[in-house]
Write a protein that binds this DNA or RNA. Structure first.
Lengths: 198, 198, 198, 198
DNA sequence: AATGAATGAGGATTCATTCAT
DNA sequence: GATGAATGAATCCTCATTCAT
């Protein structure tokens, strides 16, 4: 998840992520990060200028990672539908496989702790823009209703996030069938024709 | 919002909410709560046993308030569709009118800072259960597909929350037309027939 | 020395003065101040906003105290000479009786740690201005040469400070006779006629 | 100023002096010294055993330099008066030309941070002893009153230091005329006859 | 009920110094 | 000789909480 960082930075970022998600931002004290990561406090400050810096770096790294994960196998040649399903499948897979990173982004993407600059950088590397483009194509091809693509993505992302939240909290199990149903529901919510047209 | 509490408690709860939402949980220190609310720290501890207690009380109070706000004008006599639209309209109105309470619940409903007990109490007084019942009726009447009602509510709630987030962050404006479109999209995502049947 | 402060503040100021003079500013850590003064760190911050604040308050308090000490018994009716001798006698007495306060002012009156604001406030309450006035009178009466009063005071003060330093470091003993000789030397350095004219 | 040291040591000493005078001892951290001097921390410790060592070396070097500067052109053949004026002129010139070194000695000559050993070594190489000898001669020749030479030097040095301080702080400008007047005042303060006898 | 002074553990961060390279 | 990564104790300061009034 943090391949482009060196060993020390990786240890710090991983530990911080774990602590923040398990407990809370305030519980992720520098001394605890130091202890759990095996890096001395002094050395942490050799690689990060502050705690805020760690958290912001974490944010950017995860968004970048998520963006690649979600869009990694979307091929231009595939149909809109295929790509639509794949994209959201990937989002769900991401939430299941990397729940910590997923929860972190959820909790802190609106936090004042994350600098606007980080959010901007993250946006460029994130997947939302790329998926919104897909929606644009769907509108052009007459598959989707004429709604702002960014708005639709936001709605669908909300749906997915919330069923993942329910899953994470064990309110509801998320089987593969349910995943497919949820993605179909997203499709139906904005498609002109109901159901997959295969 | 905190009618059932006395003056002192109200001042404390209101101040705490404001501080937490504006800044962050960690920024809402007891001394700041005391200063902004006009209640001395000593007296705060007369009415609340700890900071955690304040936050949990806040949580329960807001969920209760939200529950009443969302379901206040749902009449059994009205059609499923009317109630469906009204309920989600209310959720949006709530998010717009009481953004602080709304954001607070969003941010902390999955936080370890909120006791499980609080979440349970909140669930009973919240609106999710009541709306889920409505979805159950819709399935019975053959309007909705056979999906777990709680699951559908979760999905739709996610959609609404995320467009409200976008609205709050000024990413996208949320006009009344867009609200209606979003609610219709929710309906279409799980309805057997597309569109409002009026 | 710190009569106008409350008990806690007095303890803190006294302890801080002692530590700074005995050791050094950097050695006067907040935890040491807390320990030696018997006031908890938290409570220190109840009365002072920062360590800088303590040091600056210390500075102002001592300058004020010194000003009163040096000029306490100067009567308008007395001759220039009498007042001249008394003033410098007092400065020496101050340096001997309150060596800590004296050394502190010496060491920190030019330090960037002391705010300009503090220096300004201190100047108003200090004794230099009042003594400079005396010098002005001496010039008017034809006793002193036509030198800028402030300049003469600065010179004489330097002389006194340095013999006090020598005394404090045990380089040279400072008997009462020597004190008188030193004061006479100051007088002679700027008087038109040599020696006391009595 | 630090000719007898090698390049690395010079860089470290110069940087340290600058930092200490501009800010304060505590602000002159090893990492800052390393950064500003272009010498790595590790290498600093190759040439100096500790931070204290640097500061003490600095102290000794400057005192030595000052001593040479002040006494460099005092010739045995010249009259007492000529040498007196020259010596103090040199002190003032030193203070003006090398304010950093001057201020450093002022601030730290009484500091516990400087080892007694350093002060002793410095005393031997300093100029005070040599000037005191001059004062001794003046007494022998009946020019000065019978005061301890070391005491007189201390007094006069104090005067000069304080008008230099005033100058450095821009309280008072120090023109050449004023310098001469100040030196004359010093002379008069301990001379048997008033004024230069030329 | 109400105040706010007092506590001291714990917060983020910096520092002189060491050590592997 | 030279580097700068690594250490962890010590820095100032804040915090939730208690207690005397």
């Amino acid at each position: 998840m943090f391949d482009r960082y060196n060993k020390v930075q990786q240890a710090v970022l991983e530990t911080t992520l774990e602590l923040i998600v398990d407990k809370e931002l305030q519980a992720a004290s520098m001394s605890l990060i130091a202890k759990n990561s095996g890096v001395s406090t002094g050395n942490i400050y050799h690689y990060f200028s502050s705690k805020e810096d760690i958290v912001n770096e974490l944010y950017k790294a995860i968004v970048l990672f998520n963006g690649e994960f979600v869009t990694r196998d979307l091929r231009e040649g595939d149909s809109i539908q295929t790509r639509f399903r794949l994209a959201w499948k990937n989002v769900i897979a991401l939430g299941k496989k990397y729940p910590n990173g997923f929860r972190f982004i959820e909790q802190y993407s609106f936090s004042p702790y994350i600098y606007e600059q980080s959010k901007l950088e993250a946006y460029k590397g994130g997947w939302c823009g790329r998926v919104a483009k897909l929606y644009g194509e769907a509108i052009e091809q007459g598959l989707f209703i004429g709604m702002e693509p960014r708005f639709m993505v936001q709605m669908h992302y909300g749906s997915i996030v919330y069923i993942l939240k329910g899953h994470a909290q064990h309110y509801m199990e998320l089987t593969e069938d349910l995943e497919d149903e949820a993605i179909l529901a997203c499709w139906n919510s904005v498609s002109k024709e109901k159901g997959w047209n295969e």
